[in-house]
Amino acid sequence: MKTSKLLFLASTVWILGTSAAEAQTLNWFSLRQEQRNIVTVNAGYDYAFAYGIGYGRQLNTKLPTVINADFTQPAGEQLFDDFKTKIGAQVLVHRINHVHFIVKVQGVFRRYHNEYVRLLNFGSDMSGVIGYYRSHWFAAGEFGFDKAIVTHFKHSDLYRADFPTVKDGWYKPATGGNFYFGLQAGYSFGSNDITLKLGRVVQEDFQTNPTIPFYLQIGFNRRF
């Protein structure tokens, strides 16, 4: 039963393919059963300088599970022209004493807008985390994949002035994909966590880097 559940989880993860850094970073050891709600604020570099908020809900399940919704937007003068939302879950799939194995699966919807184009993208983000968790601190490694599965392009008149026959519409197969891997750590006190995660981002060809090939996020969780 356990094996079939893990296989099911793995296949879900595989089908969804996988975004990066800003899902809630939790100290699973200090998360108590009665703490059903987790709210998060965070800031850092996630492709661009970005800040976000998140909400997590701990489910009453055999495998400890937190479903979550996150909203992130990059810095800039225009609010809400670019943003990323994620809805998904993270599951503590296995535990050996203080060593925890966590799988995160999230659906991603993101928007991008500049003077040339507006992009709407549906994507996925899958990651695995292995870490050592104690009641007041944790340290873990993560590896994940952020996939831009299908993207809608709508170009402005400005871009059409250069290229009048540009084709708007849904673009498929996937328009982008980035792997990320790094470390996460946190300090817990009372019902609060201060978390830090940092790592490297590389395009799916494992040869090409984004302009800033790193991510860094500082977060604060409040559990209640």
Partner: peptide, 21 residues
């Protein structure tokens, strides 16, 4: 400006579109 719209427009886009060399 590291917190400006221009720079972050450039960087944020990189999760939507990637290509090989």
């Amino acid at each position: 400006n590291p917190l400006g719209e221009s720079l972050n427009d450039v960087l944020f886009m990189e999760q939507f579109i990637t290509g090989d060399r």
